[in-house]
Write a protein that binds this DNA or RNA. Sequence first.
DNA 1: ATAAAATACTTCGAATTCGAAGCAAATATC
DNA 2: GATATTTGCTTCGAATTCGAAGTATTTTAT
Lengths: 148, 148
Amino acid sequence: MKNKLKAVTIILRASKSLEKLLKSDISSYGLNTTEFGVLEFLYHRGPQPMSNLCKKLLMANSSMTYVVDNLVKNNYVDKYNDSEDKRSNFVALTEEGEKYIESIFPTHENRISEVFSVLSEEEQESMMESLKKVGILAETIATNKEGK
Amino acid sequence: MKNKLKAVTIILRASKSLEKLLKSDISSYGLNTTEFGVLEFLYHRGPQPMSNLCKKLLMANSSMTYVVDNLVKNNYVDKYNDSEDKRSNFVALTEEGEKYIESIFPTHENRISEVFSVLSEEEQESMMESLKKVGILAETIATNKEGK
DNA sequence: ATAAAATACTTCGAATTCGAAGCAAATATC
DNA sequence: GATATTTGCTTCGAATTCGAAGTATTTTAT
């Protein structure tokens, strides 16, 4: 039992350290993690409606508005109406934004991947499996408990 | 390589879900996670100087001031000068605070431990080991990179 | 066709957390 | 023993994120 609460703190701390690493890497490009997340998602998946960005990047739409509007100001993305559904906005990389994320991403990937060099393939696999299970259960319990 | 960035998101998401669960449980007692963390730490380790709370709970001391001052307002803890070192404040549970955390903790422990029921002992052990390694390396890289 | 409900997004205000700057006390250095 | 540095904490302002409420538009139900 004690063991399990310890496991919780280990997960939280590893995640915190990882976030710190991400932040330190990403801030070296002059972005914050959410901005980077959006750029990367658009880079790999193409233009997206706001609603989908929120869903996939797990952010409240009020937060997404803020983040995307900043990216628009910096000329990394465009935001335009969906002609099909006038309620909906699409977000897409500008040329500048695309060049930028393209120039950044490989370095980023290398730097981050480095932390898994301490694990064998099997260790990594099994860790991912376990974490998925725990994460899903936690999410389920957490959202059911609120009972909205 | 792709695999590794995926591993990152799995860690971050599991941790996010876990935090959500903690929050939802803890808020049912009328506390937030940091307040709970402080009360729990004092409960298990006895009175502590502010500086140690910061260190162990990984919080900036400005944040700790805020959290502890709120707990003082709610009469869960006392804050008093260390007679040995007049710069230092000690924080300790009040009787009320002790009764409170005592009444809460077992339930909390049960609820949270539940999420690990999906893992065998070995799975849990190996997950903890792997996460520790990754976490430590991430922390090291992150803090060296800043090069303070 | 009209009213009601749902969806997409924005705006606003609150919560949480942090870093930077500041003050006071203690310790080290000359 | 005076000065400089370190340590412990507080205050302040900024960043990030969220939920609630509001607007506009579309979809659904009557």
